[in-house]
Design a protein around this nucleic acid. Structure first.
Length: 241
DNA sequence: ATGGTGGGTTCCCCA
């Protein structure tokens, strides 16, 4: 909250999606956010996971989870409509390491996400599928592709699962503006990755065709990753006209 | 192949 509130005041985004809130809904600190003119919806649990949507406009048609008991005991999905934009906010399973039980769960989870998206959303609408995907799209998202080759966040099956979602009709807006590598969104605390400039791009905002058409800017707010007690992620800011 | 840092809870787990 010490970092979010000043950031909200400075940037004033229309919609903000949070992941890893690690907080039950009853305990969520709503008032300081509402005082800044935002309404919010949350889907949280103690210690792990948790997602929230904040918006200056009205938040409607809220959904929590996939509606599938195999996945919904972990609070990783919240969706809503804000004006003409349908938002799905995701905290994708990390997967720990390639071949682990958690990794298999991650691949199943991504498959379920694809089915959910196919069932729920109309590609003729402005749809934004965003959040911490815990997957790099390709090697341009990796500071050192040789080092990361085949590892968690970069393995071929994870990327294939993300590609399958994108193949439903959702595009990475960064590639509307540039083909260059970089634009990292996450840096590991353990290796002091941010200080060393060794990051990954694992946070994405995938857009339906009308949303992509309306998209006029893409930015990673690296400043928000700096300073005292930062998140290990930097916010991705996508502008739709 | 390993460990490093950080947060939150419990003396360990997850990222």
């Amino acid at each position: 909250m010490e970092r979010l509130l000043p950031w909200l005041s400075e940037k004033r985004p229309e919609i903000v999606c949070l992941q890893e809130t690690k907080c039950v809904d009853e305990a969520f600190p709503r008032e300081p956010i509402e005082e800044l003119g935002y309404s919010l919806v949350t889907f949280g649990q103690r210690t792990y996971n948790g997602v929230a949507i904040l918006a200056k406009g009205g938040i409607e048609d809220v959904i929590r989870g996939f509606g599938d008991e195999r996945f919904d005991d972990e609070a990783r999905v919240i969706g809503a409509t804000v004006e003409d934009v349908m938002v799905l906010n995701l905290y994708v399973v990390n997967g720990q390491s390639v071949g682990s039980e958690s990794y298999d769960f991650k691949l199943s989870w991504l498959e379920r996400l694809r089915d959910f998206v196919r069932e729920r959303y109309d590609l003729a609408e402005k749809v934004v599928l965003l959040g911490d995907y815990n997957v790099t799209i390709d090697d341009r998202d990796v500071h050192d592709p040789e080092l990361w080759k085949g590892r968690i966040l970069c393995s071929a099956p994870e990327r294939a699962a993300l590609q399958a979602l994108m193949a439903e009709g959702y595009s990475d807006p960064l590639r509307k503006f540039t083909e260059e590598a970089g634009h990292h969104t996450w840096w590991d605390f353990r290796t002091r990755g941010f200080q060393r400039g060794r990051g990954l791009r694992i946070d994405h905002a995938l857009l339906s065709p009308p949303a992509l058409e309306a998209c006029t800017a893409f930015e990673v707010d690296r400043e928000a990753r700096d300073g005292a007690k930062p998140s290990d992620h930097a916010p991705v800011i996508v502008t739709l006209d």
